[in-house]
Design a protein around this nucleic acid. Structure first.
Lengths: 208, 208
DNA sequence: CAAGAAAATGAACGGTGTTCATGCCGAATT
DNA sequence: AATTCGGCATGAACACCGTTCATTTTCTTG
């Protein structure tokens, strides 16, 4: 009598999984990673405490699932920034989009980096994929900017540029480290982009 | 009858404080921030569980104390890199020293950024001081490189450069995010330095 | 030496993630 | 249609965490 929803392929197990991911996502978005408690989650989902562990092996697995969604949204936000403009402008737009996303969804964004899986646990392939898709967004403008570099060097460069931008934003938004007012952070991000762009132009000149 | 040690000014309270900081430092250095447990700490210090809270208000306060020591060691490691060489080389040496320190003392270094104090709690002044001392290490080479900039702009730039280098190193050493082999990380850090240095030279030329 | 203050003690408290014996319910079989 | 059976939901119980506080011990001081 139930089961009249669209995705008929989803069994009860999958239904509970999705519901838990939804609720965990909202909780993390509102209260951060530390706000996610097993008992509250079960209460909000209307299921028993133990039911969580029939759907996921860990809370860690659930968190990774939420983080994968955050990565997807972030990828979307970065993708919208690249309007087949000049490569350098595209990179700047992506950096600004990253800062904008971090500000708009700070707790969810924080959770991407605060969460650590238990020592020795391997990163699931589907999570590594989501992470690599994000980095690959930088590939097109980099290919345009540095036609001489091969794909693996470009991928490494993409990670490095992402990491540099991330570092400035992460520490800039962190009270404990820097306490940077918003306007100053905007300026400093712009400065970093200028510095890196100048270096990239020099690099591209070296390779011709 | 006791108290025959050198620092006669240290009372029992201070003695316990220092002992706890010592042990916490070793624990964090060996097992990371998550390895620090109140009961283990008390057992290792040979004191009761409650005694910890007569010496510190929180474990957080104790952790901040350990982190301040780590900042001091880091400052030392960075200071040794600046042998009144050319400014650009000094900056590169500092970045490499930072990577070297992060590798050599990875759990302690991680603890600097993993630890978050409870929401709303202000950063103690003595901790902010230690952090600012670290950034100010970059000031001398930057002043040499960009004589036109005033002190506040230099301080902001110092934080930005530090953050960029930190981002590349932090994400590079992070398994979950990047999984970068050591040699590649060395190369990518060198690349970042090259890019930033080129940008800085351009910036300094703009200001003359 | 006695009396008071200060510090150390560790059992207990409230919270956490995770497990597991139990009961229930739905589906397949006869 | 009755019955068996397998698997999932259940939530009390477990192990562990940081922190507190009544009590005991220790030290200082008049």
């Amino acid at each position: 009598m139930n089961e009249n929803n669209a995705d008929a392929g989803a069994g009860r197990r999958t239904q509970l999984r999705d519901r838990l991911i939804d609720i965990a996502q909202e909780t993390i978005a509102a209260q951060g990673l530390d706000g996610l408690k097993a008992r509250d989650l079960a209460a909000a989902a209307g299921c028993a405490l133990g039911a969580i562990y029939t759907a996921f092996h860990d809370l860690d697995e659930l968190i990774l699932r939420v983080n994968a969604r955050t990565l997807a949204r972030l990828e979307l936000a970065l993708g919208a920034a690249f309007v087949d403009a000049e490569a350098e402008q595209a990179l700047e737009a992506m950096a600004r989009a990253y800062l904008s996303f971090a500000r708009k969804e700070e707790p969810s964004w924080r959770a991407l980096f605060e969460h650590r899986l238990p020592p020795g646990a391997p990163v699931p392939a589907w999570y590594a994929d989501a992470r690599n898709r994000l980095f690959s967004r930088l590939d097109a403008p980099l290919a345009q900017l540095l036609p001489g570099k091969d794909a693996t060097a470009r991928a490494a460069l993409a990670r490095t540029l992402f990491s540099a931008v991330h570092g400035v934003i992460a520490l800039g938004l962190e009270e404990k480290i820097a306490e940077t007012p918003p306007k100053l952070l905007d300026e400093q991000l712009g400065l970093l982009i200028r510095l890196l762009a100048a270096g990239l132009m020099m690099e591209s000149a070296r390779l011709i």
